[in-house]
Every structure is written in structure tokens, then in C-alpha cells.
Design a protein around this nucleic acid. Sequence first.
RNA 1: GGGCGGAUAGCUCAGAUGGUAGAGCAUCGCCCUUACAAGGCGAGGGCCACAGGUUCAAGUCCUGUUCCGCCUACCA
Length: 882
Amino acid sequence: MAGQEQDKAYDPRGIEEKWYGYWLAKGLFSADPAATGEAYSIVIPPPNVTGSLHMGHALNVTLQDVLIRYNLMLGRNALWLPGTDHAGIATQNVVERLLAREGKSRQDLGREKFVERVWKWKEESGGTILRQLKRLGAACDWGRERFTMDEGLSRAVREAFVRLYRKGLIYRGRYIINWCPRCRTALSDLEVSYEETKGALYYIKYPELSGRRSVTVATTRPETMLGDTAVAVNPKDERFTGRVGATLRLPLMNRPIPLIADEMVDREFGTGAVKITPAHDPNDFEVARRHELPSVRVIDESGKMTAEAGAFAGQDRFACRKAVVLKLKEEGLLAKEEPYLHNVGHCYRCKTVVEPAESIQWFVKTKPLAEPAILAVKSGETRIIPSQWERTYFDWMENIRDWCISRQIWWGHRIPAYHCAACGQTTVAVETPDRCAFCGSGNLKQEEDVLDTWFSSALWPFSTLGWPETTPDLASYYPTSALVTGFDILFFWVARMMMMGIEFTGKAPFRDVVIHALVRDVRGEKMSKTRGNVIDPLEVMDRYGTDAFRFTLVALAAQGRDIRMSDDRVEGYRNFMNKIFQAGRFVRMHVDEETPKELPGDLQVVDRWILSRLQRVTDEIRRGIEEYRFNDAGSAFYQFTWHEFCDWYVEMIKPSLSPEADPQVRRDQRAVLLHVFDTILALGHPFIPFITEEIRQSLPGERDSILRRGYPEADASMLDVDVEEDMGHLMEVVRAVRNIRSELSVPPGKRVEVRLKGQVEELAFLREHEEIIHRLARAQKVVYMDPEYIPVQDATAVVNDIEVCLPLAGLIDFDQEARRLRKEIDKADAELSVVMAKLSNEKFVASAPGDIVTAHRTRKDDLEEKLSKLSKNLELVTRYLS
RNA sequence: GGGCGGAUAGCUCAGAUGGUAGAGCAUCGCCCUUACAAGGCGAGGGCCACAGGUUCAAGUCCUGUUCCGCCUACCA
């Protein structure tokens, strides 16, 4: 029994896989650059090969899928290009962890073997996330799947590198960069995340060599003092007048260092004197350049103290910090130590504290690239949506700093630069050169470093389409139509794609950049493994079905807001899926192979009403998708389908579908029903692809995919304002009856007479469609009263110019009816006073637009009329009571 | 230190170009009415954070304040 009950509800299991396979088999997602139709293209933000689907991907992918399916249905030549990112550091970490389990390090294997091992891992485990995208229904063109380390994309990377190098936009040099001692590689500025950390500010005395005075400096990293080569003060600081040029003794190292003057020093901070450690601080590095100071590297690439650290050599940097402080105390040179809250940089991959360190790295000179990228957005060539992100984009672009692109890891694109052992010059070339371009020597050795993963990602919109070759794909699908992504990678990725895209193709890579929200948990917290609040999208899909999950994401995807995901929401939309499924069953019960596809020439009023509403909602949904207001599109679809089509239209037409109905009327009615429902399915398909395909193909006669149906288009000729208004009144009459029945506890099974009082012409429409009122209001019969009728023992309500009267003597408590009427009167009264207040204001009448004033006037008349009717009826009721 | 976003019904949130406050969930009544109890019908619930200002009219525009969140920054 219970089983049967369950069978009546929608069960997405089995259906989803079936249709996804069907779409693939039919090649519906395979794009052809030669095909007709306006091109529409999206490249997927490539997820990490190491990744598995999380809520962020789910939202991102769903929105793209909505766009792609919508455009496919519009008949455009739509391409959605999928792929993954090799994610250098992350992937290398994964494989290193696997090796560690075998007790091996990557160094044990050696570079070549290690890289082979990573490839093997990628082949075996790298496809997880792509399989999960399929589960979501993603209409990707899998034949065009790309990986950032593909042969083609690697070629593009080398080409881009060489071109930038030749233009002088890539250079190599010794600078301060962010170094992760755990990953043992340089990081770009963006890959460092600053976290507020409780530390201490140490005040250290540096004695002058001659004399008894000393200079006190403040630092949060005392261990770096071992590498100090100067102390700096502001030249305008009177406290140090006459002392600049003095020689100080560097404590613990007993090295003489100068006291210098530099503008960079803030007189207000600390003691006004700064220790200068050129090898381990970006500011100090600059100061050292200006003053030609030597640089002493005291921390090595694994975070241990170097031989330059004297007695502290070999210690870990944090152990050394303690040791240095202790030693300074012993020597009486620690003036003060105070707690200090400051921002400390951490590696965004492994959370290790980053160490600024001087080393030789490769950089992209970004300013010349940023300028046109700024211009592209300013000119509107690329739109950022929502536009408030433009400002963030400009801020970053305008203050952009050079980009450190070399990484000291093995997994990635090896930099195409070859150092000559003979002359020391570096040859940069796309293909491995035989000889040094400078001296002709064959003794070349390729650069060991690989490129930042984001370097290859920056080329993604065109490298995936075949660049640097001029391919048909590139010609047809570049620039792409939209990029859909989260704001967290606006700088990492979007900004860099803009720069590279313009540099190499002359065109910005996207028409629109659509920035969507972050998905958070119910409490609004960011989902993270450490917090343990991660909701697994796959589990949600298992429980509620993919369509319900997708619709939830769409419905919650309001622009500029974060999304709070919870089971309740998904459950609500799961119910909506069931509603659609049930509606499908209803339609299937009433239509058959004979049901005409075309709308009948002769439409009933209810049909004209639903068709008019359908045009409006079609328009709303299309506008929503086109303006990336997905939630608006989703809720328009929801409201219409459930609350207009199911709640009203289906209920209203039941009589004309019954076997007793006139065959012609029945046939016509079926045709309209089918047409409207079919349109609903098509409208919903981009959001809920599986259930719409399933139901549509279960309808009589349907054998082709819903994707080929074409997206519904609003037909203005079907709009009918009058019918919408008349039907609105009729529905209000029904509601009024229902309300009275419910409020006054009229037994549900009890049929009552409905008396409609008003002028003949006002009653005409209702009289014509009496059948609807009769059924939906559970009327025993509907009768019409002229305006002279006095409803002595009736419960009453006012709908526009009509009074709805229910003779209920003996059935109800008239005390209650009196209370009900008073409540109505109060409501109308309150509203009237608001309207009156406006109308009695001369300035309002004088300066407000005419139509607004007119609207208020009619509103006033209506309310007064309503009030007079209500009061009269209340009087009747109370008189009857006494 | 700069910048951005948020504060609207018990909860989660919508409310383009200023013109009579909406949805979903939750709550309360009543109903297994033959598509649907994952349902139907009805109802209650809001000085739209605070203080000023602009305007005939302000969740909506301007200024300031208070909380909350995020991004960014070379104060050692």
C-alpha cells in the first residue's frame, strides 16, 4: 500500500542518467563552427584536476548550463567548452602525499619519474569532477574537453611566453618574492593570504660602536636581525639628527652596520628606527638598493637558518626566533616586548607562514598589459555583471604589481628558457633550441622552474580554441559570450585572462563577465572541510534529485548576494518538481495522439486568460535569463506554473475536459492545455532539464528532444488586458466566497447559494462564467441580485462594484460575521486615510504625474464605495443580532 | 588604512529607473474534493537597523551613526 502511495510521487532516479546519455548520443552538445546560427560560447572555469564537486562548482555550472541550454533552444550555435586545470602546487602536493605513504619523496624519484607519476595519477583519478559535472546535467561539448597541460595548450603557453619575452614583458631577475618553505616554491602576491595573528613586537637595542648610546628598533621577526645590514631612520626625524652615518654593532652577530636615513621610515611607528634586512623584507630590499647595502640571506628555502646565521645556523626559523629573543635578553639588549596583533602571510595552498625571500625569479611586467584591460571594461567591450565589481576590478588593475610567474616545483609547464653554459646567456624559444642564440654553443640547459598555473589559465579562452593556430573554432567562438565565475578568482583569473586575451588576440575574451555569489551553509558561514559544514552536492542530488537541486541554486542566485544552502529549500523545490510531474500526469490523462498541436481558432475566455498570462511570463523568464537575473526567471516560472496554471487554469477547465463535455469543446480545450503545458516544459528546461525532457517525451506524439523544440517566444498578439482584468475579478469573487466559508466555519461539504449583487452589466462577465464560480466556490447555485437587494441574513463581501452575499442563516454565528466585517472596514479605512492624506495635499495634486493622481482618485472612490457597502451590511447584521 | 556588501514577516531572502510592502519555509484553522497530502483552501504576521536631509511622495536617492560580513594594503 505504502509502495503504491510512493509510486504516485515523482522519482528522479534512473531518469537523469537516461536522458543525459540520450543527449550525448544525439550529439546535442557538440558544436560545429560551420553550423548556422549566431555563435554563443562559454569556456568553463576549469576546475582543478584534483578537485571534486562542491557547492561552488554546482552553482557555477548550473548557471552556465542554463545559459547554454537557453541559447541552444534559441537555435544559436552554442558551445560550452569543458576542461580541467593542472593546478601545479595542489596536484604536486596530492601526489607527494601518496609517495610519502610509500616512504618516498619526489627527490627520491627524480624529476622525470615524478612527473610521469603525476600524469599517471591524473589519468586514473583526474576525471572525477568531470563525471560529476555530467551528473549535474552540464551540456558541455565533451569532444572539445581540454587540460591545461595538453600538448596544444602547452604549445600555447610556450608561444605566449616567448612573445611576451621578446616584447620585454617577461624578465628574469633577483627580487624579493613570497616563499613557501613547505611547498618550497615562490608564490605570487595573490597566492599569499594574510591572516590576523597574535604575535609580539620586540624592541631591540643596537649599540653605537663609538659612545654609549644605542638605537632601538622594533620588529615582529627578531630572527631576521641576523641578516640585518643597516638601521634606517627618517631623515626629518630630529631625534636622530647628527647620528645618521654612525656605525652600530649588530647584536649577536657583532657585525658593524650603518645608521642610514630613508624617506620610507615612518616616524610615528615604533621607535622611528627600522632594522634593514634586505634579503627578507620587500621594503628593506628597496632601501638596500637605494643605499647600495649588502644582502645577507639567513633563512633557507626550507625555513631553516643558513650558515650566515652564525650560532643559530640549522635552526628552524621559529625556534630561532625564541633563541634570538632569549639571547638578547641575556645580553640585556631586549628593551621591551609587547603583544602585537598583525597580519601574517600564509601560503594559500598549505597555510604555512610565508617567508619573504630574495631570489632569482621570472616576472611578467603587468602595467602595459593592464592598461588595455582596463580600457576594455571602461569602453563596454566587456561588461562586468553586477557592475559594482567593476570598481574592484579597476582598483586592482590600476595598482597592479609585476607578477612572479616562476615556481620551483616540477608539475607544470617548464619555462622555455635555455641557459648557455658557455656564454651565460639565456635563449628563449618555443621549440627546444640546439644552439645558444648568442654564442652558438650547444651546451644548453633548460630552466628548471615551471610556470604559475594561472599563466596557462590566463590563456584558457583562446588556447582551448586552438590558438596560436587560426582555427575555425577560434574564428567562430572567440571572443566568448559570457564568463561565469565567482568573485574569489576575479584577480587570479579574470583579470589575467583579460590582459592576455587582449595582448594576443587584440580582443577582450568575453562579452560579459558574470560574477555570482558564494554558497554558504545555513548559518551563513563559508563551507570548509575544517569547519565540517560542507554540504555535498552529490548527496543532495541523491536525496532530492538533480532538477530540484539545480532549481534551488537558480532560485537563490540573486545578484550580489551570498547563497545560504539548506535542505529545507531543496525540499521545497523537490515538491515543485513533484507538482510539475503531477501536472504532467494530468495532462497525459486528457490528451492523446488525436490532440491537435495547433491552438484552436476559437478560444474560450479561460484560454485567452492563461495564454495572455503565458506571454507575460515567457517574456519575464527570457528577460531574467538574458540579464543574468536567474532568480527572477526562476520565481516567475515557479509562480506561473504552480499558482496560475495548476491552481487556477487546470481547475477551471476540468469541466470542459470531462467526457460529458461537448466533443468539439473538449478537443479544443485539450489542444490549449497541451500547448500551455508544453510551453511550460520548454520554459523550464534550462533550469530543470531532466524532468522536462522526461515529461515532454511521455506526451503523445513527442519523439524528439526538448532541446530541439525551440525556446518559447512571447506573442504580443495573445496579450489580452481585458480578459486578464475580468478573470481577475472572477477569481476574487471565488476567493471572497472561500474566505467567508473558511472564516465562518461553513462545513466544507456544505454547498451554499452564492448571490451576486450589482448592476446587470457588471454582472455580465460573471454570469457568463458562472460555471467556474459554481465549481470553485462550491456553490449550490449562483443567483443574481439587483442593486436594491438587501442582504438581511447574509454574510457579505465586496469585490469591486459587486457584493458577494451568502445566505447563511442558521448555519453561522452572526457575531462572527460582524467581527469579520469590522475587520474589513478597518482595513479599507486605513487605506482610505492614506489615500486621502495624499489627495488633500495640494502639492501632491499639483506636482505628481497625472496618471498617479487619477489612480489615487479612483482608488479613493472605490474605497468609499466599498466602505459604504460594508457599513450598510454590518448594520444589517448587527440589527439582525439585536 | 582604504574599498565593497548587508541590516525588510519567526527563519532565509526578493524588492531595475522613488508612486498603495512580496515569495519560500515555519505558524494557525479547515479538508484524503478522482493530477498531486511532496497536496488543496483559508488566515495571522512587517514604525523596511538608527538619526537627519532631498521630494508632493523614500526599503528605494543623499549625509551621518551603530552593528555584521567580505575584499584589499610593503606600519617594521
